[in-house]
Every structure is written in C-alpha cells, then in structure tokens.
C-alpha cells in the first residue's frame, strides 16, 4: 500500500518561501510526475515526502499515517537520485543489499532478493563490480535495484535520467514504465522534461514557483490546460500565444494555438494570417516552421515532412477554430 497525502504543506528557508501551500492526494499504485521549470520547488517537494527535508508547516501522510516528523529511514520509501548516489566502495551486490542489511534481513533472504533484482534489471553479470566500472545506464539500474529490494511503499525518482544521453534516456524511460506496470507500486517522479512527464505519468502535477498549477492526466493537461502556464509548458513545440486585437476577436485577453493545430497553405490569400518563413527545421517526419506572422510576431507551425521550405517563403496560416485556447487577463483558461 502506498497512498500519499499532503495537507497544506509549506516549506520556507528563512525568509524565502519555496513552497507556499500545497495539498495533494496521490493514490496507491499511481505513477505521478512532478514537472516544472528549474527552481519551481519540485525537488524540494520530493525531498519533503522523502523526509530529507522537514516541512515548515502542514502534514504528510503515508497510508493515512502522519509521518511529518519521521526520519527518512522510518518512512519505508525508496529514492533514486539524479547522481545515482551509489556507494562507490561497495560492489554492485553490496549496494543492492545495503538497505536489507540495514533492516537486519537474514543473509539467505538478502541473497535471494538481490538475485531477483539483478535478474529483473539485467545486472547478473555485473554483481561483483564496483559502480565506477559501470556505464551510466547500468549505474541507474543498480540504483533502481537498490530501491526495489526494500519493497518500499513508494518509489521516489529525482530526475533520474538527466545524466544519461538521449538514446539511453528513451530506453530507461520505457524500463521504468514497465517496472511500474510490473510492481504496481506508487511512484513519484520528478523531471523538468515535459516529454518524460507526458509519456510516463498516470497523472502529472505541474508546478510553478512552488504552486500546483494543475494536477491531472497527461491528455487532460494537453487538452484542457487550466491556465496559460500549463498550456505553454505542456506540448512540444510550445503553444503560440497571441494577445491584443486578434485575441479580442475571440473575446479573450489572449489566445493560444498549438503548432500542430494550423492549416498551412502557400497559395496567396488562402489563410487567416500571412507570414514569412524564418527558419525551417526539417526532422524528416515533421517540419517545424518558425514563421514571422505580420502584426502578430513569431509563431511555430508543425507540418508534415514531405514539403520543403526555405528562408523567405511566404506562407498562409489558418488556426483550427475548435482548438483555439482562450485565456483571461489573469492567464486562466476561459
């Protein structure tokens, strides 16, 4: 079991308020991602749950039990760090066995569990090596192995993939998702990468300046962003925003259109907005056009990769009428 409840959690360092007031309810078995720009308090929030920091006020409950003041060792959670934080002086086997040794588990059971974790994570042939002899991906697996042997109430991941190269990151993303499906244990995963958030999460918490901007499933966030911040943060490339008279036509302070929600034409006059291609990023499957739209500024447009564009080409854009997001002066969605 591993439901986690935050009630009016506040964290301040001296005068600086990192997290003003957060309440969250994470259900048992859920995969929740905390996402937000750097400095938004997502790592601090994770460390509060872990017990590595203490709350300034508010309560943290695990399975309904208040653990606000409990030290990390007594919370029964496991954490995977960005730097992996493996014990460099211990073999892989001893690294994985360490939490069990701390729990005074009998040696026979330790061996059994370590072997199981090693098999699950394909670490069998590395068990007697030192961490420094492993690649980044292997180290990450050892860190995960160390976490799973404890059979924790929940796993906490603190940007675990950010030290890996791009290809490996995609692989590990899949492995962690599979692990979740297999173990069905609550996982909280912190990242600044919205792609990781979208692909892995059951539900996403979007954080900004220590506040929860929105808490919902990935598609909910994509389709019904609660405000301009979430709309701009979720989705890649970013949503285009327009304010001024063009927005007023839609009875809004500002409107947003995602790059993939345009109809594009090269025929003169065949579109609402006329513009000039500034840069065309051709990925093969897609092409991202950075278009200087007359009177509205720079916009990103996504189109299929079949057509080629070059600097200076005239293009005409029509936003998909059903997919225009409208925001009021405070940035809230209308």
């Amino acid at each position: 079991m591993g439901s986690i409840t935050l009630e009016h959690v506040n964290k301040s360092f001296g005068e600086v308020e990192i997290i003003p007031d957060i309440s969250l309810e994470i259900k048992d078995g859920e995969f929740v991602v905390f996402v937000g720009p750097s400095g938004c308090g997502k790592s601090t929030l994770l460390r509060l749950i872990a017990g590595l920091e203490d709350t300034s006020s508010g309560h943290i409950k695990l399975d309904g039990e208040d653990v606000t003041g409990a030290p990390p060792a007594r919370r029964g959670l496991a954490m995977v760090f960005q730097s992996y934080a493996l014990y460099p002086h211990m073999s892989v086997r001893d690294n994985i066995a360490f939490p069990l040794k701390m729990a005074k588990t009998p040696q026979a059971i330790i061996d059994q569990k370590v072997d199981y974790a090693a098999r699950t994570l394909n670490l069998g042939s590395y068990l007697d090596r030192r961490p420094r002899a492993l690649s980044g991906g292997q180290r990450q697996r050892v860190a995960i192995g160390r976490a799973i042997v404890r059979e924790p109430k929940a796993f906490l991941f603190d940007e675990p993939l950010s030290n890996l190269d791009a290809a490996l990151r995609v692989n590990m993303r899949l492995e962690i998702t599979e692990l979740h499906q297999q173990l069905k244990t609550t996982m909280i995963y912190v990242t600044h990468d919205q792609v990781e958030a979208m692909t892995m999460a059951d539900r996403i918490v979007v954080l900004n300046a220590g506040n929860v901007e929105q808490f919902g499933s990935p598609l909910e966030l994509y389709k019904k962003p609660a405000n301009r911040f979430v709309a701009g943060f979720i989705g890649s490339p970013k949503m285009n925003f327009v304010d001024g008279p063009e927005a007023e036509k839609h009875k809004a302070h500002a409107i947003g259109v995602r790059p993939e929600h345009f109809t594009l034409s090269t025929t003169a006059g065949a579109g609402q907005w006329a513009g000039t291609v500034n840069v065309a990023e051709q990925l093969g499957s897609d092409t991202f056009l950075h278009v200087e739209v007359e009177g509205l500024g720079l916009m990103t447009v996504r189109t299929d990769g079949d057509q080629t564009f070059s600097h200076g080409d005239k293009v005409y854009l029509t936003p998909d009428a059903n997919r225009i997001y409208r925001f009021d002066a405070a940035g809230l969605a209308l």
Binding site: G51, L52, E53, D54, G69, P71
Partner: peptide
C-alpha cells in the same frame, strides 16, 4: 539543507 532532526 537538512531536517531539524539532523541539525539536532
């Protein structure tokens, strides 16, 4: 960066 308990 530590808890009250650690500081004590």
């Amino acid at each position: 960066m530590a808890t009250r308990q650690t500081r004590t």
